[in-house]
Write a protein that binds this DNA or RNA. Structure first.
Lengths: 239, 239
DNA sequence: CGCAGTTTTGATGGACCTCAAAGACCGTGG
DNA sequence: CCACGGTCTTTGAGGTCCATCAAAACTGCG
């Protein structure tokens, strides 16, 4: 996977607008790193020598309070960007949720390249604006949704991301793997792990979802799940 | 206030890195608009013909659910940016919290200017990354803090913003105006207005704050307020 | 004054947290 | 193969924080 030409995320990553020449310059300063599920990629406050794109796997961004309470503030999926040009310490803990591979760029040269490469800067702006939108959507979830709505929203999002990944539409009977532990879900949703577990059991008993083992979720009726999210469903296209 | 040279926010706004020549081009496509407190600047879903900087006053970004629940997802203060180049409908309601003046740029020409003006694009990226950080900080507040911690955090933030505005440090005995109604605070904090009122009464009874009228807040001991926020205080510099 | 909007205060209930223990899953080693 | 321990998950009982419902007090204004 040395070559950007065969990169699975090239069409969506920070480098997606770069031409062959610009990709060449990026290749010169890039290197891959892998982490196992559970490993910490960066601790909040660490010096960051690189910025990076997630190539495969999932990472989380988390913020903690002194007494141990933590809140996940972002899930990084393939093609998402880690780090911030112009700042040299990590603001959040970055943890590999699943096995993870990233395409890292040495920070200094990357920042220099940004100055002379509008296609890089403008794609990063676009991605950052998208992330800001997701963060704000999550604020609505954290501030106003009930536990049931939170869980349903998370499952809906994970289902549609899984569908996107395999280029399929969400549909009745679809199944996907839950990459997160109950605790990680709780941290993301602003709940306790017990509440997460109870709500999932509730959805299972109500027949909205089935579980195959602990980690595989089957959704017999996508519409039914979406009615539990509290969201407007006008945009929900079912197949 | 026609001239960017006398603009109070020029040094922090999206145009802060522009040279005289670039400012000239911006002046050609800009116009001021004013709104009274309570007026809606944009409805979610509206076509946006412009992007803008807040010059004076405060605006809020809010997201609503069908059943009426709402969550404020951002507070826009002087120098903050409204709108997103590359998208033409507003994602959130934008409401003038106080009397408000904005410096608007026609969207199409602004987008064209962005393509040829790196200082504009890079400043917007920087501002967007800062906003993303604030949004994530707010996620911690919404997901994990208690009502008392939420109120205390909001008061601390408003106090330090007020101090910044007048180029003073936060200090014991400082006073500032609460620009938000109880309901607006509740929408921002993910609480009900009754809970907001009760917590403020509690802080008042505990002597952590004093109220002069309903809207002016006096903070006799900034440190005491900050211990209520739940945050790490290592950075808190008192005068 | 009287009215509308905002804020305060009270009483009650419920959603979710906390504490606790048991059950399921999985790899390891006897 | 099964026993063993560790991790993750489920389930239960009880308590608390905050939402909800309701009404009164305050504010500003015609």
């Amino acid at each position: 996977m040395k070559d950007c030409g065969t990169c699975p995320i090239q069409h969506r990553a920070v480098c997606s607008l770069c031409n062959r020449d610009e990709l060449g310059k990026l290749e010169a300063i890039k290197y891959y790193r892998s982490y196992e599920a559970g490993q910490t990629v960066l601790w909040a406050g660490d010096q960051m020598g690189f910025v990076a794109s997630v190539v495969t796997g999932i990472a989380s961004l988390s913020q903690g309070m002194e007494d141990g309470r933590t809140q996940m503030v972002g899930l990084l999926l393939p093609s998402d960007f880690i780090g911030r040009p112009g700042r040299d310490t990590a603001p959040y803990d970055v943890v590999a949720v699943t096995n993870l591979t990233i395409c890292a760029f040495r920070k200094k040269p990357f920042e220099e390249l940004m100055l002379t490469t509008p296609s890089l800067a403008s794609r990063l702006l676009e991605m950052t604006l998208d992330e800001l939108d997701s963060a704000r959507e999550w604020m609505l979830l954290l501030g106003r949704k009930t536990a049931l709505e939170k869980i349903s929203s998370l499952l809906t999002i994970l289902a549609s991301r899984d569908a996107t990944l395999y280029k399929k539409a969400t549909r009745n009977g679809m199944a996907f793997d839950l990459p997160l532990t109950r605790e990680a879900m709780a941290d993301y949703l602003g709940l306790t792990l017990e509440t997460v577990s109870r709500q999932i059991s509730g959805l299972k008993k109500a027949g909205v979802i089935h579980l195959e083992g602990k980690r595989r979720v089957v959704i017999p009726d996508m519409n039914q799940l979406m009615t539990k999210t509290g969201d407007d469903m006008d945009g929900g296209i079912l197949v």
